[in-house]
């Protein structure tokens, strides 16, 4: 509507120059490299060798590759599950209840987004590794090993994607207010009933959105997981670590194939997100 105003609609040489610049910039920085990675994924390894889709699939069926993807999926699944339960709970607490430290908590919740993945990995090592960790000794004597095993990798993944659900749910909870919850309560509904029948339906899409974001972030996590994982083939090697290892070992075709799968997953997440946005707005 606003753009129908004549003052904004007028186009001059500057308009076209800026447009050209932006298209060129995004093409060189993002689109062309993406195109290149796609074409290499399906290119023959060497002259005369077989390329295309079947070669791509074959590379993905390597046991180390299937192991890496299933490990990535496991970590992502648990991290997302934990973050969803925890995220919805914490969102309700900081928007619905009054307690000392509420505001500090809401600020701290965002911290994991801004911490370098390497620092996340280091922090988990320094707290829980059996050798040097604060609690490593105690955990070791209880027979629990976190660093270098799957639980540590799940924690690393959960750490980096922790605020994503909360960031989506909190604004929605704030916007809908507590009037209908109070009304339900005055009609005799208990806390669980209020949550199930009043609150949850209105934050449904925000939760789904947060889950998709967390999932995308978890599937792609690299730095934090790399530090807490042994990172060897068939032993703690996730999809992202596999890409690094294969690329540096000059097994580029496998690296490209795995990378392409993750590119597809990200694009899919983008599409789902935009569909949810539309659904939510209608």
């Amino acid at each position: 509507m606003a753009d129908t105003r004549q003052i904004r609609a007028r186009k001059g040489p500057v308009t076209y120059a800026l447009r050209f610049f932006v298209i060129a910039y995004l093409a060189v920085l993002v689109v062309w490299p993406l195109w290149e990675v796609t074409s290499r994924t399906f290119a023959p390894v060497e002259r005369g060798a077989e390329g295309g889709f079947s070669a791509f699939l074959e590379r993905l069926q390597d046991p180390t590759v299937t192991y890496a993807f299933s490990l990535t999926a496991t970590c992502a699944f648990w991290a997302v599950l934990i973050n969803t339960v925890f995220g919805v709970g914490i969102s309700l607490l900081i928007t619905r209840y009054n307690f000392p430290g509420r505001r500090i908590l809401s600020v701290l919740i965002d911290l994991p987004m801004s911490v370098s993945p390497v620092v996340v990995g280091l922090a988990l090592v320094l707290a829980y590794s059996s050798g040097q960790g604060w609690f490593g000794g105690a955990l070791e004597s209880a027979g629990i090993f976190i660093i270098g095993s799957t639980p540590g990798m799940i924690m690393a993944t959960a750490f980096v994607s922790l605020p994503l659900v909360i960031r989506e749910v909190v604004p929605v909870l704030e916007e809908i207010g507590i009037d209908s919850e109070l009304a339900a309560s005055s009609l005799g509904a208990n806390g669980w009933q209020i949550f199930r029948r009043i609150t949850l339906p209105s934050i449904k899409w925000a939760v789904v959105y947060g889950v998709v974001l967390s999932l995308a972030r978890s599937l792609g996590e690299f730095g934090a997981v790399k530090i807490v994982s042994p990172g060897a083939a068939l032993r703690g090697e996730t999809a992202t670590i596999l890409i690094q290892n294969r690329y540096t070992n000059f097994e580029e075709p496998t690296a490209y194939a795995a990378a392409f799968v993750l590119v597809l997953a990200s694009v899919l997440a983008l599409v789902v997100v935009s569909l949810i946005r539309k659904e939510d707005h209608s």
Partner: peptide
Amino acid sequence: ALPTIVAGLVLLTLY
């Protein structure tokens, strides 16, 4: 949306 390691790889294919 891209995993960071993939971002690096993507840039390396062209540059």
